[in-house]
Amino acid sequence: MKRFLPLIILALLAILPLIGLSTYMMHIVILVIMWSVIGMAWNLLGGYCGQVSFGHAAYFGAGAYTAGILYFKLGLSPWWGLPLTIIVVTVVSLFIGFLCLRLRGPFFALATLAMGEVFRVTSENLVDFTGGDLGILIQERTWVEKIWYYYIILFIAAGTFFLIKKVIESKLGYYFVAIREDQDAAESLGINTTLYKTIALCLSGILTGFAGAFYTNYMGYIDPKVVFALHDISIVTIMVVMVGGVATYWGPVIGAIIMVFLAEIIRSIPWLGVAHHTFFGILLIVIIIFLSNGIAGDFPKIKRLFRIRGTS
């Protein structure tokens, strides 16, 4: 049963649009899936390999701009951005990895944060290449109906999920966890930590880049402040994973549901008004105080809590 759970959920998701959701709901669901892709990608690097990145917006934005510039400069369909992202983001990841991976802990976190900002400001200033602050507007989007976008992002998400599962269950995954638990010990056992960290970073970056390229196609408008945003992309990514559950397969998905779907519900409560931010902030604080490994990570704890309630 448990082995087939991902397939069952995938099948359920595949028939979801057939029951006739409104486009509003479809939009939210698409965003949830997109954020789970980013979350899963981050989780590979941060959760399993222990390298907490504060700059995933760099990869997201690189992916988004790959697609955008193809359209803007060459007049090609931005969908070509998806395959091309692999090359572009690999280069970006190797560059960032080369600079930042020699650092550890909070230093790595802060260095990646800075890299994300460097990318934003650079793309703002390279006006001829990126359109600068005017951004890139793609007028003819491929489809009006959401259903195609839905299947594409679902396909990407499913691919990401199984890829990460495969990686984590392979030797590579054990190396990653070893690096997370104790880098020095891992190194003394003969693991080439720099190599494996770079692999994790590249994989994570490419998967995030896919989400970015998809974003360009789906939203039809990007500008540096949106796709390279520190708070709205990089930090939200971290929250998606940490709220959902670090180093779990389903954590990012649950996190994305909370960060997008629940946030939207809370935002829509009429009597809360502007205060929805406070409400959501308090919710995050409560989650992290009581479930410090996230919802999926501390699932046994929740189960226990409910059982005690149930018996008494």
């Binding site: 941060g46 907490v52 976190a109 940490m242 931010h277 959501f280 902030g281 989650i287």
Partner: peptide
């Protein structure tokens, strides 16, 4: 697993 989970906390505090 990750000590960085306090990041969420400080983000939450900042939001509030």
């Amino acid at each position: 697993i990750l000590p960085e989970n306090q990041v969420i906390l400080t983000v939450g505090i900042g939001m509030v």
